[in-house]
Simulated assay, not measured.
Amino acid sequence: MKSSDTGNSAELIEMLRQDAVEKYKEEHGWIPTADRLPNQREFIESYVRSAYAAEFLATIEGADKATTLYYSQTGVWFDEQGEPYKVVAWMPLPERYKG
């Protein structure tokens, strides 16, 4: 195997990983924090909706159920009392029901 083959393999593996992450998001909506955190656009959109802080649906490490938490641009997930949490996955809040 040539060294150039190794580079191509690494690129292919990264491309396949990204495709798998995108497919997972499309099917489940959850974004693992190991893959990425909310970007600037997602943060601002969420902040505008909440008018208090950027709020997301989150899965806390070790929890059985999802909950809503706030996210700061410093990378901290916290509740209404300011308690920090270790989040393993997140997603934007769905639109409100308009009946």
Score class of each variant (00 low, 15 high):
residue 1 M to K: 08
residue 2 K to A: 12
residue 2 K to C: 09
residue 2 K to P: 04
residue 3 S to Y: 14
residue 3 S to P: 02
residue 3 S to C: 14
residue 5 D to G: 00
residue 6 T to R: 10
residue 7 G to A: 00
residue 7 G to Y: 14
residue 8 N to S: 11
residue 9 S to W: 09
residue 10 A to E: 12
residue 11 E to T: 12
residue 11 E to M: 05
residue 12 L to K: 15
residue 12 L to D: 14
residue 12 L to E: 15
residue 12 L to I: 04
residue 13 I to W: 15
residue 13 I to E: 11
residue 13 I to N: 10
residue 15 M to D: 12
residue 16 L to P: 01
residue 17 R to G: 02
residue 18 Q to T: 13
residue 18 Q to L: 11
residue 18 Q to M: 12
residue 19 D to L: 12
residue 19 D to F: 08
residue 20 A to Y: 07
residue 20 A to I: 11
residue 22 E to W: 12
residue 23 K to F: 11
residue 23 K to Y: 12
residue 24 Y to V: 07
residue 25 K to T: 08
residue 25 K to M: 12
residue 25 K to W: 10
residue 26 E to K: 14
residue 26 E to H: 13
residue 27 E to R: 10
residue 27 E to H: 07
residue 27 E to L: 10
residue 27 E to T: 04
residue 28 H to S: 13
residue 28 H to A: 03
residue 29 G to E: 05
residue 30 W to F: 05
residue 30 W to E: 08
residue 30 W to H: 09
residue 31 I to C: 02
residue 33 T to I: 07
residue 34 A to D: 07
residue 34 A to L: 09
residue 34 A to I: 07
residue 34 A to V: 08
residue 35 D to C: 07
residue 35 D to E: 13
residue 35 D to Y: 07
residue 36 R to Q: 06
residue 36 R to W: 00
residue 37 L to A: 05
residue 37 L to C: 02
residue 37 L to Q: 04
residue 40 Q to P: 01
residue 41 R to D: 12
residue 41 R to W: 05
residue 42 E to W: 04
residue 44 I to Q: 15
residue 44 I to P: 08
residue 45 E to C: 04
residue 45 E to L: 07
residue 45 E to A: 08
residue 45 E to V: 03
residue 46 S to Y: 03
residue 46 S to K: 06
residue 46 S to N: 11
residue 47 Y to F: 11
residue 47 Y to S: 02
residue 47 Y to H: 08
residue 48 V to C: 04
residue 48 V to E: 13
residue 48 V to S: 09
residue 49 R to V: 02
residue 50 S to K: 04
residue 51 A to S: 08
residue 53 A to F: 06
residue 53 A to Q: 09
residue 53 A to T: 06
residue 54 A to I: 06
residue 55 E to N: 07
residue 58 A to V: 10
residue 60 I to C: 13
residue 61 E to K: 15
residue 61 E to Y: 14
residue 63 A to T: 07
residue 64 D to G: 15
residue 65 K to E: 12
residue 66 A to V: 03
residue 66 A to S: 15
residue 67 T to G: 00
residue 67 T to Y: 00
residue 68 T to A: 06
residue 68 T to I: 06
residue 68 T to L: 06
residue 71 Y to V: 02
residue 74 T to S: 15
residue 74 T to F: 01
residue 74 T to W: 02
residue 75 G to N: 11
residue 76 V to E: 15
residue 76 V to Q: 15
residue 76 V to I: 15
residue 77 W to P: 01
residue 78 F to H: 12
residue 81 Q to L: 09
residue 83 E to K: 15
residue 85 Y to S: 07
residue 87 V to E: 02
residue 88 V to K: 08
residue 89 A to I: 00
residue 89 A to D: 06
residue 89 A to T: 05
residue 90 W to E: 00
residue 90 W to C: 01
residue 90 W to P: 00
residue 90 W to Q: 01
residue 90 W to H: 01
residue 91 M to R: 14
residue 92 P to W: 00
residue 92 P to E: 03
residue 92 P to V: 00
residue 93 L to F: 06
residue 94 P to K: 05
residue 94 P to V: 07
residue 95 E to C: 00
residue 95 E to K: 06
residue 96 R to N: 11
residue 96 R to A: 12
residue 96 R to D: 10
residue 98 K to F: 01
residue 98 K to E: 14
residue 98 K to W: 03
residue 99 G to N: 09
